[in-house]
Design a protein around this nucleic acid. Structure first.
Lengths: 194, 194
DNA sequence: CTGGTTCTTGACTGGGCGGTCCATAACCAG
DNA sequence: CTGGTTATGGACCGCCCAGTCAAGAACCAG
C-alpha cells in the first residue's frame, strides 16, 4: 500500500555502528552517517529518530553481538570450562592487538555517557552484568567440575574477567602488541592455578 | 614592561582538566572552558592556542600527576613491595568506585584519539609505558626480595597491572560498587600466590 | 487508473561552534 | 608622564551541525 523502504534496518544499524566505533558518538556527524549508510537524512530520521537514537540502536546490537560471541566461546566446545576461558582470553589478546582505531561501542558509550542515569550508561551497565553472568556460568561449571576450589567466589571472578578484558581492549587500542597482550592474558589466567 | 597575566597557567590547566575529565574533548566547548577557567577566549587562545592544545596540556599534567601518585604508592613505605602493590590496588578499588562521572584524561584521550599517530595517542601510549615501568620497578624489587619466583616475568606482570587497573576504572565508572571492585582487586592480586 | 500512504531527495534554517579582531587596560622602563 | 608591549574582554564571523520542510516518487488496494 505504501512505498517500501529501500534499506534493511539491520544493515543500516550495522554500518552506523562501524562509524560510531571509529569516531565515537560526539565526533560523528549526521553526514558521516548519511555517507556510511547510503540513506538520506530524512530517511534516517524517519526510521530511527536522530543521531543519539541510532547510536543506541547500534549499541544494543553490539551488546547482543558481544554477549552472543562470548556465550559461543564459553559454552560450547569439547574443552573444559576453564580451558574455554583460556582459549577465549588468548583469542581476545590477538583481536585487541589488531583492533586498529576501533573501540567497542560499549566502551565508547561508557566513556561518552554524561551521567549514570543516561541511557548510554544503563545499557553499558546491563551489558557488563550480562557478560559477567556468562563468565559466572562458565566458572560455576568449572567449580562443579572440581577445576576450581569449592569456595571460589564465582561472581567475583567473573567480574575480574570482565575488568581484565576491558583493560586489554584499551591497551590494544593504545598500541600494545600481540605478544605483550598475550602475556597479559596468561598472567590473568594464573588466577586459576592456586 | 608589559601587562602581567591575571592567571596562573597551572591553575587554568587544572580547571580545564576537570571539565575535560567530565565531558571529554569533543563534547567540551570553548565556552565551557571560559566559564571553568574564568579567562576570556582570547586569553585562552593567547596562552595555549586552542581547545585541543589545552587538552594536551591538561593531559600531560594528568599523566605526570598519575605517574607521581603511583610512584609515591609503590616506592615508599615500610611495607614490602608486594604489599605496597596490594595496598595500592585496594585504594584504587575504592577510588574508582566513587569516581562518579569522571574518567581519567588518559582514558579519554585514548578513546577520543583518531589514529595511532595522533598526539593524543602517543601521549597515552607513553603514559602506559611509564606506568608499566613503575610497576615493573616495584615488581623487580619483590623478585630480588624472593617474594616472586626468580623466573617471574616482571614486565609482563607490570602490563597486567596496568590492564587490570584500566578495567577497574571503567567498571567503576559503570556503577560497579566498592565491594565488587575490591573483590576484583583481590582476585587480581592472587597472581602472586602461586 | 486512481487515491492513499509511506518513503526519498535535496534545499533550507536556526543555532552553536571554534576561532579572530580590535579597542582598551595594565604594566614598567626611561 | 610617556611610549612600548602584552593581556584582556567583548563583539564579531563564517562554518558546520542536527534537524525540518515540502515536493515528488514508489507502491498497492480497489
Amino acid at each position: 500500500m505504501a512505498r517500501p523502504r529501500k534499506f534493511v534496518e539491520r544493515d543500516v544499524v550495522s554500518s552506523a555502528g562501524e562509524v560510531f566505533a571509529v569516531n565515537g558518538l560526539a565526533a560523528t556527524t549526521l553526514d558521516d552517517l548519511v555517507q556510511a549508510t547510503g540513506l538520506g537524512k530524512q530517511s534516517l530520521y524517519n526510521a530511527f529518530g536522530g543521531k543519539r537514537e541510532l547510536f543506541l540502536r547500534a549499541l544494543s546490537e553490539d551488546r547482543e553481538e558481544a554477549a552472543r560471541a562470548v556465550s559461543e566461546a564459553l559454552e560450547h566446545g569439547d574443552a573444559s570450562p576453564l580451558e574455554r576461558i583460556r582459549g577465549h582470553m588468548l583469542r581476545l589478546a590477538i583481536e585487541f592487538s589488531r583492533s586498529g582505531s576501533r573501540v567497542s561501542l560499549q566502551t565508547r558509550a561508557l566513556v561518552e555517557s554524561t551521567d549514570e542515569s543516561d541511557q548510554l550508561a544503563t545499557v553499558t551497565k546491563a551489558g557488563i552484568e550480562e557478560l559477567a553472568g556468562i563468565y559466572a556460568h562458565c566458572l560455576e561449571l568449572a567449580r562443579e567440575n572440581g577445576d576450581l576450589p569449592a569456595d571460589a567466589n564465582v561472581s567475583s571472578l567473573a567480574m575480574y574477567f570482565v575488568a581484565i578484558t576491558r583493560g586489554m581492549e584499551l591497551l590494544g587500542r593504545s598500541g600494545v602488541g600481540r605478544g605483550a597482550l598475550t602475556a597479559v592474558a596468561l598472567d590473568a589466567l594464573r588466577v586459576f592455578h592456586n
